[in-house]
């Protein structure tokens, strides 16, 4: 322990003071006990800007210990600048082991994606959340939305989704697609593409959500029903892609569209960089990988 504490003499372990950690830990326990309910917490000002993961960082800092292995992703990638920055923050203030491999991590902090590889029991997935209130864009007042949750009054959300169907023939929400947790609370899954919604359902991992600026923490315990809102005649559907990943040939994964030139040239590659690399290490190849497929 001394080796750890010596390195970080200027901060407490994991940056937050112990009283703040206790306050956040109590909020996390309540969040787990009431799946999908947004627990107000006294979010602190962090050394990174609001909107850049302060909620996720506070949750991770309150959960993390010296035995943990941390992975941080943004847009599914370990090497996006804000993921790099947050990972470096925890290396500095908690001297914690980090990884890019989904399976090796005990805590994964994420922005906008859920890893493709199914998570394991004991893993904790920490989401950075900008606007935790799924009803916020339908009703901007907290005093009103709190009542709606209390009364389980979600008609407004169904009306909004149904208006989409009336106008477009289908639901026109592609990310931050609302879910219902264990048949009770309507919850914002954070701005992940709806492609990732099914991964939340009955996940083996504990899912924690931190919204720093909005001062809310919520949770989905493992093995919990998470259902995307839909209608009998318009069942929920996820995005599909017309071609496989150009690097690993993966299908049934979420792809980023990369523009190659100004003449309309483009390619599609995995958003989950770790999953893509693992597949290539196993010998999978896409049409632009530039390498021979393993034989």
């Amino acid at each position: 322990m001394n080796a750890h504490t010596d390195n970080i003499a200027q901060y407490n372990f994991a940056y937050l003071d112990e009283q703040t950690k206790r306050m956040i830990r109590r909020a996390i326990l309540k969040a787990i006990a009431i799946p999908g309910y947004q627990v107000p917490f006294a979010s602190r000002e962090m050394p990174m800007p609001y909107g850049w993961g302060t909620g996720g960082v506070q949750v991770t800092a309150s959960v993390i210990g010296t035995d943990d292995v941390l992975k941080v992703i943004d847009q599914g990638a370990d090497d996006t600048t804000n993921a790099v920055s947050i990972r470096a923050f925890f290396q500095k203030v908690a001297n914690v082991e980090v990884t890019t491999h989904t399976a090796d991590a005990t805590i994964i902090q994420t922005r906008h994606r859920i890893p493709e590889e199914p998570l394991n029991a004991g893993q904790v997935l920490v989401y950075q959340v900008p606007i935790p209130e799924p009803l916020r864009f339908l009703e901007p007042r907290e005093t009103e939305t709190r009542k709606m949750h209390a009364l389980e009054e979600y008609g407004l959300m169904h009306v909004k989704l149904y208006e989409d169907i009336a106008q477009h023939g289908h639901i026109a929400t592609t990310f931050a697609y609302p879910v219902k947790v264990e048949g009770r609370y309507v919850m914002d899954p954070s701005p992940t593409p709806k492609f990732d919604n099914p991964k939340m359902h009955m996940s083996k991992a504990l899912q924690l959500f931190g919204a720093g600026r909005e001062k809310r923490i919520y949770a989905v315990p493992p093995y919990t029903r998470v259902e995307s809102l839909d209608f009998e005649d318009h069942p929920f559907e996820v995005q599909t892609f017309d071609e496989p990943c150009a690097l690993c040939g993966g299908t049934d994964v979420y792809l980023d569209e990369v523009v190659l030139d100004d003449r309309g040239g483009r390619m599609f590659v995995c958003s989950d960089t770790d999953n893509c690399e693992a597949r290539r290490a196993e010998g999978h190849r896409g049409h632009l990988s530039g390498e021979e497929a393993a034989t």
């Binding site: 000002e45 800007p49 609001y50 909107g51 850049w52 302060t54 943004d74 847009q75 599914g76 996006t80 600048t81 804000n82 922005r111 906008h112 994606r113 900008p130 592609t174 990310f175 931050a176 701005p191 992940t192 593409p193 709806k194 492609f195 600026r213 995005q239 979420y254 792809l255 980023d256 569209e257 958003s271």
Partner: peptide
């Protein structure tokens, strides 16, 4: 501080949602 953080966070990558 809250306002500037959230307005300026729009410059973080959002390409996954944009793809959607």
């Amino acid at each position: 501080v809250q306002a500037t953080g959230f307005v300026e966070h729009l410059k973080l990558p959002h390409y996954v949602d944009f793809q959607a």
